[in-house]
Write a protein that binds this DNA or RNA. Structure first.
Lengths: 240, 240
DNA sequence: TTAAAACTTTGATTTCAATCACATAATTCT
DNA sequence: AGAATTATGTGATTGAAATCAAAGTTTTAA
């Protein structure tokens, strides 16, 4: 018996539920129950998980990979609103208030998703009210992130905004190495430009400038090394 | 008896609870119960309801007046994040996830507040789980608004951003009059500049330009008339 | 493996809003 | 009311990033 339970636990560890904070209040028994309700899907890089205006019918949890959420501005530029990574969930708005998706979400790399159907999700909320509180908390922190973006996009100095972005990425995608922080960029130059609302060429130039100043070093196109984290933070204005 | 109930109902109408969507699922009996828990406060124009970093101990509902939420950018500029109006609530993050306030909130005019203490609020959530769902829904729509701001601030054309702002304001603060929409601005020129992340002088110039073009007419310093809503919307890029 | 397509860098030029400086208007205070 | 303070408007100048243009580079696909 014990062996079996251990076995099951081991198998649960691999599931998205363990990566997502909204389920942390549940015990093993409950998690197992939910696990049986979860569906899986995979998308290739570049595919849309859903598009603006869609009615999303499941809670989507990212189990592997990452995705960007964006809309088009009136100028036709793509404005990126969020980068979702492993453990993030999305689609909750559509499930709880019946709104249509307010942005398109597209895979930045191949992604594996865990899906929880609307009905099951709503039932779950009734059964475990603590989940609702967790969701409110998570939405709160997501709002804080959005507020940060809004603030940093409101900063006029583009240098500061780019530094903020690099530091942001370093927290999520960086690995400490002897020389500094090695960073695998989730976005292309164009993507970063769209995230910050600036021109692609400007990112290139600024990154080049930072490299000349010895703050960073380009390793490959998609990887860079942060050499002087502190100076970068100072440039960013200690915003985070 | 009936008279008494009517009386009580009449009195309830005046309370903030009726202005705030999170309580709409409750019946009269329940509302009355909550009403007894509510405290009142008033702030003068310019006073801070709370400052960034504070531990807010109540759910705050705006019963009259309006307030701005802002932070300082690394450049020392005030970046406005939200304008709260009658019926909006705030402070829920601090109550549910014990975070400190991530912005300062300051009265734009004299405001009357209804306060619901943390304990009572949490108890309420347990008693009426539907309130949690309402809150999630409301947070969702607030996020949508933030996303809109983020998108519109990401729009490079400043004309478009100003038009968006005017149209936004017209929905909340505008009255239809024969000539168009009469708008009492909740923010000064400087405030608008801080909301959009641009210079005060630029707002002045653009507003002047729009007036020359016949899109708007300045009535007084704080009031303006939108003459050509459609053209304004076209300039805004139909964003809303 | 090469060809094509997509992405990136770099340079030259232009544009538009920030800044500076000051005049004018509107509020607030006593 | 009148002075003081604060907010707003306008012109001149500057500067930084957008745009345009074109050459490299990397990735993808055939």
């Amino acid at each position: 018996m014990v062996a079996c339970v251990n076995n099951c636990l081991a198998c649960l560890q691999k599931l998205c539920m363990h990566k997502v904070p909204i389920f942390t209040s549940l015990n093993q028994e409950e998690l197992r129950k939910i696990a049986s309700l979860i569906q899986h899907q995979e998308y290739q890089k570049g595919e849309a998980l859903f598009v603006e205006g869609a009615l999303v019918s499941s809670l989507i949890i990212i189990n592997e990979g990452s995705a960007k959420a964006f809309r088009y501005t009136s100028e036709g530029r793509e404005q990126i609103l969020y980068i979702f990574a492993e453990g993030d969930f999305l689609g909750e708005q559509n499930l709880l208030s019946n709104q249509r998706a307010s942005y398109t979400v597209e895979a930045l790399a191949n992604v594996k998703l865990c899906l929880l159907a609307k009905q099951e999700f709503q039932q779950l909320l009734e059964e475990y009210p603590t989940i609702a509180v967790k969701i409110i908390a998570e939405l709160g922190s997501r709002m804080t992130r959005l507020e940060n973006s809004l603030q940093s996009i409101g900063v006029r100095s583009i240098d500061a905004r780019i530094c903020s972005l690099l530091l942001d990425f370093s927290l999520k995608y960086g690995k400490a190495v002897p020389e500094g922080i090695l960073l695998r960029l989730p976005l292309s130059r164009e993507g970063m430009a769209n995230y910050l609302g600036i021109a692609r060429e400007t990112i290139s130039r600024k990154l080049g400038q930072f490299e000349n100043e010895g703050l960073i070093r380009g390793v490959s196109n998609k990887e860079l090394l942060i050499l002087e984290r502190d100076k970068l933070a100072a440039l960013a204005g200690e915003l985070g």
